[in-house]
């Protein structure tokens, strides 16, 4: 463990907590893409199949359980409890356009052709594009609540910090994982224009408005 990875995990945890708090306190999931949340739940499910078979540390196991519980709790809040506030009309990204290519690529490019490894690889590729429905929704509605933009900033920062972690681990222990690293770069690049808007607008107290 290093401070970059710990920082990344805490940014990820913060993002998940911000989202749950936003939905719970405003009792509304307006502006949030349920499709992205489905992809995140899928990602964690496919990645943490080894939750009971591969014990790394208490921290690792606890965080996996927290991520899984939070992902499904968010789906419950969006599709059951506050279903009436879910914005179907703006959350229209076709999930199959993301799930099928990620699954196909995971079958072709992986570290090992085994169930657990292909599922892990699928989760890595899926996570890289999981935010697209959310970014698509923000561009369609043309704006986002400030709490939603804080959520996106924390979520985007998490994988950016992981990239620093991989650089650090490469030079300090010779560890590298090209699949996770390249997918992480793609994932972080997708946030770039949002990061620009967040830093130039939201941090100045303005609302996040996307040029329509």
């Amino acid at each position: 463990m290093n401070i970059f990875r710990l920082g990344g995990d805490l940014a990820h945890l913060l993002a998940i907590i911000i989202l749950l708090l936003k939905i719970w306190t405003t009792r509304s999931c307006a502006g949030i893409s349920g499709k992205s949340q489905i992809l995140f739940a899928l990602t964690f499910t496919a990645r943490y199949l080894d939750l009971f078979t591969n014990f790394v540390s208490v921290y690792n196991s606890v965080m996996k359980v927290v991520y899984l519980a939070a992902a499904y709790a968010t789906l419950y809040l969006m599709y059951v409890k506050f279903k009436a506030t879910y914005d179907h009309n703006h959350d229209t990204f076709r999930l199959e356009f993301l799930i099928l290519p990620a699954a196909g690529l995971a079958l072709i490019i992986n570290h090992e052709f085994s169930i657990i490894e292909v599922m892990w690889t699928f989760s890595i590729y899926l996570e890289a594009v999981a935010i697209l429905p959310q970014l698509f929704m923000v561009s369609k509605t043309g704006e986002a609540e400030s709490i939603t933009s804080h959520y996106l900033f924390a979520l985007g920062s998490y994988r950016a910090l992981y990239i620093v972690n991989w650089v650090y681990r490469y030079y300090s222990e010779g560890f590298y994982d090209m699949i996770a690293t390249l997918a992480g770069v793609v994932q972080t690049v997708l946030y770039c224009d949002f990061f620009y808007l967040y830093i130039t607008k939201v941090l100045k107290g303005k609302k996040l408005q996307l040029p329509a």
């Binding site: 990875r5 995990d9 990820h12 591969n54 690792n60 991520y67 570290h111 590298y176 994982d177 699949i179």
Partner: peptide, 10 residues
Amino acid sequence: ATKSMNKDEL
């Protein structure tokens, strides 16, 4: 190779 295989990251 691109191997890592040790899944110690989240």
